[in-house]
C-alpha cells in the first residue's frame, strides 16, 4: 500500500506545483532588492582619506594598492576588483571611514584592466550599467498559499 502511496504522491505534488508562484526573478528586468548590509562595489571618499594604508595591509588578496592622486601627492587606495573578493575588511578597518560600501554588484566589464579602479574612479557614485534596462526592484517574500516568490516592492 505504501508503495502505491509513495508512487502516486510525488506525481500529485509535482502537478500541484504548476499552480504555485514562479520562483525565478527575471533578472535583469527584475532585480532582487539587496539587503542594507550588501557588500557591493566599494566607494572612496577622497576628502576623508588620511592615506594611512591600513586597507592595503589588511587586504587578504593584495587587491589594494596605494597610488598618488592625479595632480597631487596624496596617496589613496586603488582597488583591483578582479582580485577583490568583497570581504570588506578594508571598509571595516578604515580608521577614517573613507571607504564605504555600496549596493551595486553589476560591475562586469569586457577587459580585466577596466576592473582596476583608481581613486578617482572609486570616488564616483555607483551607477547601474547603461547596457542593462532599468530594473524593477523585487523582493523575495513568502506570501500566502501560492508559496514564496519575488514580489515587486510596493505591491506586496
Amino acid at each position: 500500500m505504501s508503495t502505491v502511496k509513495n508512487t502516486i504522491r510525488p506525481l500529485v505534488l509535482a502537478f500541484s506545483h504548476v499552480f504555485r508562484r514562479v520562483f525565478t526573478a527575471k533578472y535583469p528586468y527584475e532585480a532582487p532588492s539587496r539587503p542594507s548590509r550588501c557588500r557591493g562595489r566599494i566607494m572612496l571618499r577622497i576628502e576623508r582619506c588620511i592615506s594611512c594604508g591600513t586597507c592595503e595591509k589588511i587586504c587578504p588578496n593584495i587587491a589594494i594598492k596605494m597610488v598618488k592622486l592625479k595632480g597631487s601627492d596624496k596617496l589613496c587606495p586603488q582597488i583591483d576588483f578582479g582580485r577583490c573578493m568583497f570581504c570588506y575588511f578594508c571598509v571595516s578597518y578604515c580608521p577614517a571611514e573613507a571607504l564605504i560600501g555600496t549596493e551595486l554588484v553589476e560591475i562586469s566589464v569586457y577587459s580585466k584592466e577596466k576592473l582596476i579602479y583608481p581613486p578617482e574612479k572609486l570616488a564616483e557614485e555607483p551607477k547601474w550599467p547603461d547596457l542593462l534596462p532599468k530594473p524593477k526592484r523585487v523582493k523575495l517574500r513568502v506570501v500566502g498559499r501560492r508559496g514564496a516568490g519575488h514580489v515587486e516592492i510596493g505591491r506586496e
Binding site: A14, H17, F23, R34, P35, R37, C38, R39, M85, F86, C87, Y88, F89, G101, L140, V142, A148
Partner: peptide
C-alpha cells in the same frame, strides 16, 4: 524537479543569511 526546488528553497536561506552578513554565500 527536485534540483530546482532544493535550489529555490536554499535561496530563501541565503537571503536570510545576506540579511545580517551582507553576502549570500561567502559570509566572512
Amino acid at each position: 524537479t527536485i534540483l530546482m526546488w532544493a535550489i529555490n528553497d536554499r535561496e530563501l536561506l541565503l537571503d536570510l543569511g545576506a540579511e545580517y552578513t551582507g553576502q549570500r554565500v561567502s559570509y566572512i
